[in-house]
Design a binder for these strands. Structure first.
Lengths: 63, 63
DNA sequence: TCAAAGTGTCAATATCCCTTGACTTTTATC
DNA sequence: GATAAAAGTCAAGGGATATTGACACTTTGA
């Protein structure tokens, strides 16, 4: 399960901390998801998709 | 987080056990997800969406 | 050059997802 | 009504997700 978080974040010039704040999660969670340590829960995946205005399938990809 | 699993399953005349087998999870997991006890993990949500040929957003809805 | 911000990572802890196994209740069929 | 399949539920346990706090390293800019 890969994801495009880092790119989407870079396009907006957000730090991991910025993104974490907008998602209401810790900075470490954002980092762990970005670096592939684990996948987000489904509710968090929805919040991420909403924040970027994309479908979950456009952000998270089965590898 | 609501979902349309029960309806999608009924349309295909599958039991919870049938669905569980196709998803490679336990029948109790299918039941728990259907009855709203918890949300599936993101990877399982992808398997569910794939199985029904729908987008995750068309099956799982924020309530 | 030095301080601040950003990133990556670790440990410890808490909670959630999913499991097996068992049991009761509902639904459908005979 | 009896039977069986399906559905709902519980408990206990393991692994995954997310937390706070801390520390090191790199990058940026004053």
């Amino acid at each position: 399960m890969k994801n495009r978080l880092k790119v989407l974040r870079a396009e907006r010039d957000w730090s991991q901390g910025d993104l974490a704040e907008r998602l209401q999660v810790s900075r470490q969670s954002v980092n762990a998801i970005e670096t592939g340590k684990y996948d987000p829960s489904l509710p968090l995946a929805f919040r991420i998709a909403d924040l970027f205005g994309l479908a979950i399938e456009d952000i998270f990809l089965k590898d």
